[in-house]
C-alpha cells in the first residue's frame, strides 16, 4: 500500500512541475507558430528530436564545449531547418496561393515530420543515445537538504539533477521569450501579425518575414527543449512523438495561439499526470492511464470553455 502523506504529495507536485516546465517550453513553440501562421506543425516532435541529437553530437564531437553553447547551437540548427522549410513549403500558404490551405498545411508538416524521423533513423540508427549529465551538483548536506552529483534531495523528495537543469533552462528560455514577445519591436511585430496581417502590413511590418521568423522560433524552442532533455531520456528517432502529442493537448487547453496559455497548460498537464499516477488506488492501472488524466482535464476545459484557458474570442 502507498502511504499518502504530505511528503508524497509534495514529491508528486515537484515531479509534475519539473516535467511541466519542459512541456510548457515545447508547447510555447507550437503555439507561437499557430498564432502567426495559423498552422499546427505536425513536425514539432521531430524538431525536438533533432535538437536533442544536435546537442548530443556537438558535445560528443567538440569535447569541452559548454552544454549551454551546445543547447544554443542546437536551437540554431532547428531554427535554420524551420526557417528554410517555412520559406519553401509554407510561403505559398502565406501568399494565399494554395487552394486548400488547411489540408496542405497538415500534409506538408506531416511529410516533414516523417522525412526528418526516417532520415535520422537512416543516418544515426535506432540505438538510443544519451548525453552525459550537463552539470554535476556539488555534494553537500545541509540539514534536510542533501545533494549528490545526480540528485538533490529535499527531505524525502529527490530531484534529478538532469531534470532540474532542464526545467531551469526551460524557465529561463520562457522568460526570454516573454520578454522578446512583449518588450521588443520584433515581438510587437509578431503579435501584430498574429492579430491582423493586413493591418500589420499597413504599418510597415512584413507579414511574410514574420511568418518565417515565427516558424523558425517555434522550431527553435522545440529543438532547445530536446537539447535540454537529451541527458534525461534515452534518445531515439521516435522520441518526439509523445512530447508532440502533449504539446497539441497543451495548446488547445491553454488556448490556441496563447503563450501564457501554453505555459500554464504545460504545468497543469505535468501536475495532473503526476497526481493521477500517484493517487489512483490500483497500481496496475495508475501509470497505464497516465495520458488519460491530462485528456480528462482537456475534455473538461473544452466542455466548459471551448476556446481554452487563455484563448481569444474569434
Amino acid at each position: 500500500m502507498v502511504e499518502i502523506n504530505l511528503s508524497f504529495l509534495l514529491r508528486l507536485l515537484a515531479d509534475g512541475l519539473l516535467i511541466g516546465f519542459i512541456y510548457a517550453l515545447m508547447a510555447m513553440g507550437l503555439t507561437l507558430i499557430f498564432s502567426v501562421l495559423r498552422v499546427v506543425s505536425f513536425a514539432h516532435g521531430e524538431h525536438y528530436m533533432i535538437g536533442g541529437f544536435a546537442a548530443y553530437y556537438l558535445l560528443e564531437t567538440f569535447t569541452g564545449l559548454h552544454p549551454l553553447v551546445a543547447i544554443l547551437l542546437a536551437g540554431s540548427v532547428t531554427f535554420a531547418i524551420g526557417a528554410v522549410f517555412e520559406r519553401i513549403f509554407l510561403r505559398p500558404l502565406a501568399e494565399e496561393k494554395v487552394e486548400r490551405p488547411g489540408e496542405y498545411a497538415i500534409l506538408v508538416t506531416f511529410g516533414l515530420g516523417f522525412f526528418l524521423q526516417y532520415l535520422t533513423l537512416a543516418l544515426i540508427g535506432p540505438h538510443p543515445k544519451k548525453a552525459a549529465r550537463y552539470f554535476d551538483l556539488p555534494a553537500f548536506e545541509l540539514g534536510p537538504i542533501k545533494a549528490t552529483a545526480a540528485t538533490l534531495k529535499l527531505g524525502t523528495i529527490p530531484l534529478s539533477a538532469t531534470r532540474l537543469t532542464a526545467a531551469v533552462i526551460a524557465v529561463v528560455l520562457m522568460l526570454i521569450m516573454l520578454y522578446l514577445i512583449h518588450h521588443t519591436w520584433l515581438g510587437r511585430g509578431l503579435r501584430a501579425v498574429s492579430q491582423d496581417k493586413q493591418a500589420a502590413a499597413v504599418v510597415g511590418i512584413n507579414p511574410l518575414r514574420m511568418s518565417t521568423l515565427a516558424f523558425g522560433m517555434g522550431t527553435m524552442l522545440a529543438g532547445m527543449s530536446g537539447a535540454a532533455l537529451v541527458p534525461a531520456f534515452a534518445w531515439v528517432p521516435a522520441v518526439g512523438a509523445p512530447a508532440a502529442v502533449k504539446s497539441y493537448v497543451i495548446i488547445v487547453l491553454g488556448g490556441m495561439g496563447s503563450i501564457p496559455g501554453a505555459m500554464l497548460g504545460g504545468l497543469i498537464i505535468g501536475v495532473v499526470e503526476a497526481l493521477g499516477t500517484g493517487l489512483l488506488p490500483d497500481p496496475n492501472r495508475a501509470f497505464a492511464y497516465r495520458d488519460a488524466y491530462g485528456m480528462l482535464i482537456f475534455a473538461l476545459v473544452l466542455l466548459l470553455r471551448p476556446r481554452g484557458l487563455f484563448g481569444r474570442q474569434e
Binding site: 516535467i19 496496475n284 501509470f287
Partner: peptide, 21 residues
C-alpha cells in the same frame, strides 16, 4: 506496476514505489 510502451518519464511511478509501506 504497468506502464505504456515507450514511456519516457517514470518519476510518478518511482515516487509511488518509494512511498510503499
Amino acid at each position: 506496476f504497468l506502464a505504456e510502451i515507450g514511456t519516457q518519464d517514470w518519476s510518478p511511478i518511482i515516487a509511488r514505489i518509494q512511498a510503499l509501506d
